[in-house]
Design a protein around this nucleic acid. Structure first.
Length: 400
DNA sequence: AGTCCACAGGAAGGGCAGGCGA
DNA sequence: TCGCCTGCCCTTCCTGTGGACT
């Protein structure tokens, strides 16, 4: 038997710690949603008219990541769809996550995606935008109904392409003869609507709802329920749930992360042939998640981003606080050395801003008085990860 | 009080790839 | 095939600016 065969045979013989791993995946929709009763009720009240073919108010939902916004909304929509089906009512809702790259991150793509939900094909690129709108109107108006359009992570959308699309979408009802459309925006940022065009702001936030973070006890209970679904009984040792909740509470009550953490811990425990999920697995998972996030985040960037980041890492070995100009110089040398195009400082400045957004670096705009205004940049990566990342970037950029 | 640095970041537009209909 | 449209990446040109220095 080959070594690999052996491995798989052994793998099959091992007992799994998980009885239902899906319960720890982010797209899992539990039967019951706890600690959000009030919000669920409000959402239901606001959206209910759509079942009677009346247009509900546009709704805006705020709340930090992992506070149950998406879950609550998906739960509500699912229930509404069930009721609609039972009573044979025309009910449409489209859920779009604006953060998904190459799906809904431009005006064109978003509309194309919407049209696709109505089973019509539209080229991925090539048509003028106003034509896309015309197609969208036509498709919407084909049969009388109310569309609930949920735009999750809407702040990403407007950050990237501005609020014109939202303006158009809120005004769309005057263009339609039969159908109507209601928007539900979900944002992680509480200050999102402040940057919006006032007209958009007022029509989008006809109703507003805030999802507060869960507290540590609530997180514990949520985790306990998920864990009892996901793992076999007695697998999770006492103290693990509590510590996991504590990690999450420290990160502003983000339950999604806590659930991820639990899943990764379980995987690590299983891999190390342990019969239980111990606190040590949790700590290991915490480190692993952080490292993986940073490294895959960096390696999925275009080469030029990697070059800038690598230049930063090089410099960082000697100095902890860097300025744009300094990094640009190192970057130029690096480009010439490995024979890449040298981008302008203007572009590199944008790249640095984007790396900041990705959380790989921290950039603060400061003034050095006589010596100008610049970004003060530091890495937000831990030392051991820096070394690993540097190696991987060298491989990716073929730096010797 | 005024100057002036070293950038930030807005605006416009070029060039490219992917895709359309004619 | 061509002309035209899009998004994307990038350049060029530009205006704006906080605060140390004079």
């Amino acid at each position: 038997m080959s070594e690999l065969q052996n491995f798989f045979e052994q793998f099959l013989e091992k007992t799994s710690l998980f009885q239902k791993k899906e319960a720890l995946l982010s797209q899992y929709l539990p039967k019951e949603i706890i600690y959000r009763e009030e919000q669920l009720k409000e959402v239901a009240q606001i959206l209910a008219p759509s079942l009677r073919q009346e247009k509900p108010s546009n709704l805006f939902i705020y709340g930090k990541t992992g506070t149950g916004k998406t879950l609550s909304l998906r739960h509500t929509l699912r229930t509404m769809a069930e009721v609609a089906k039972k009573n044979n009512l025309p009910f449409r809702c489209i859920y779009i996550n604006c953060k998904l790259k190459r799906v809904a991150d431009t005006e064109y793509r978003l509309l194309a995606q919407l049209i696709k939900c109505y089973d019509e094909e539209v080229p991925a690129t090539g048509l003028p935008t106003d034509e896309i709108y015309t197609v969208f109107y036509r498709v919407l108006d084909k049969e009388k109904h109310v569309l609930l359009l949920v735009l999750d992570e809407i702040d990403h959308l407007t950050k990237k392409i501005g609020d014109e699309i939202l303006y158009n979408l809120t005004r769309i009802n005057t263009e339609l003869k039969h159908s109507q459309i209601s928007l539900v925006g979900i944002s992680n940022s509480l200050f999102f609507s402040e940057h919006l065009d006032p007209r958009v702001k007022s029509s989008l936030s006809e109703e507003e709802l805030i999802f507060p973070p869960y507290n540590a006890l609530q997180i514990q209970e949520i985790l306990r329920r998920r864990a009892s679904e996901a793992f076999f009984p007695q697998v999770v040792l006492p103290g693990v749930i509590e510590k996991c909740a504590a990690y999450a509470a420290r990160d502003h009550g983000d339950v999604r992360r806590a659930i991820d953490l639990l899943r990764v811990s379980g995987e690590l425990a299983e891999r190390s042939n342990s019969l239980h999920l111990e606190i040590s697995h949790l700590d290991e998972a915490e480190r692993k998640i952080e490292t993986d996030k940073i490294i895959s985040g960096a390696l999925h960037q275009p080469k030029q981003f990697q070059l800038v980041l690598y230049a930063l890492l090089l410099f960082y070995m000697q100095k902890k606080q860097l300025f744009t100009g300094e990094i640009y110089e190192v970057y130029q040398k690096l480009c010439r050395q490995v024979k890449y195009n040298v981008l302008t400082q203007r572009r590199v400045s944008d790249i640095l801003a984007e790396l900041d957004m990705l959380g790989l670096i921290r950039a603060k705009i400061i003034s050095k008085g006589r010596y100008g205004r610049t970004r003060e940049i530091s890495l937000s990566i831990e030392e051991p990860v820096v070394v690993k990342l540097k190696e991987l970037l060298e491989k990716s950029l073929q730096i010797t």
